[in-house]
């Protein structure tokens, strides 16, 4: 089935109604399995049991960036192809992505307390994620400020793309700034050399949280389509009202 078929909101709604229960079920099962795996995972020789926080922290960071990627693709859909569903997808990805970004920040902060002795250090990675969070809030604020949905969609799309272009620059700057101020990090948060016993639960948790991300995204998209219907109804009612 072609993507263009889902430009019809009714078709997309029935698709969402069919897929969502399965997606939620799979996400719940995968999460249960993942948490079970995390429970049985061995401690890290350096970080001890606190490494367990990584299994939710790192996937949340991945999905935080993934969320902006989804928004960028949706933004292209809005600006280039004018696909109506792209507007909805872009708007729906913002709160979901922001929630995962916040999860990453809070778990990172709680991991930092026993490791660094403080809840917040201006570590390069944490700082970049924090700026990403601020940018998510900016996009959400822009969505909420402009009433007309399609105009808001285009404005948010441009902001999203400008952000996508700037994110690598910001990441590079923050890394550079960080090495200037903190010559050597005491702790590397989830580097590439990770023990296989820890890698398996990490990937399972990443998979489970990604399923949760998709389920939430789809559910928020469905809500958004319904919200637009309600808006249309209100407008029709206002037009039909006597004396207008």
């Amino acid at each position: 089935m072609a993507l263009i078929d889902y430009a019809n909101p009714s078709k997309f709604l029935s698709f969402a109604d069919r897929v969502l229960p399965w997606l939620i079920g799979c996400a719940a099962l995968a999460l249960a399995f993942g948490i079970n795996q995390v429970y049985g995972a061995p401690d890290d020789y350096q970080q001890g049991a606190t490494v367990k926080i990584m299994f939710v922290h790192v996937p949340a960071a991945w999905l935080a960036m993934f969320g902006w990627g989804v928004m960028s693709i949706a933004a292209l859909g809005t600006l280039v192809w004018r696909h109506p569903l792209a507007d909805v997808a872009g708007k729906a990805a913002a709160p979901v992505g922001a929630a995962f970004t916040l999860t990453c920040l809070v778990t990172g902060s709680l991991w930092g307390r026993p490791m660094w002795g403080t809840y917040w250090v201006w570590d390069a990675r944490l700082t970049s994620v924090f700026i990403l969070f601020l940018m998510y809030l900016g996009v959400i604020a822009l969505w909420r400020t402009i009433d007309e949905p399609s105009r808001a969609a285009r404005a948010a799309a441009i902001l999203t793309l400008a952000g996508a272009v700037n994110l690598p620059i910001i990441k590079f700057s923050v890394d550079w700034w960080n090495t200037l101020h903190q010559p050597a990090s005491v702790l590397r948060l989830g580097g590439p050399t990770i023990h296989p016993d820890l890698l398996a639960p990490l990937l399972i948790m990443a998979f489970a949280l990604a399923l949760l991300f998709f389920a939430l995204h789809l559910a928020v998209m469905r809500n958004e389509i319904l919200r637009r219907r309600v808006r249309t109804m209100h407008l029709l009612q206002a037009q039909a009202a006597p004396g207008s």
Partner: peptide
Amino acid sequence: LVLPLTIPVLI
């Protein structure tokens, strides 16, 4: 909206 984009310039 603009302030996050200006962080690299500030740095």
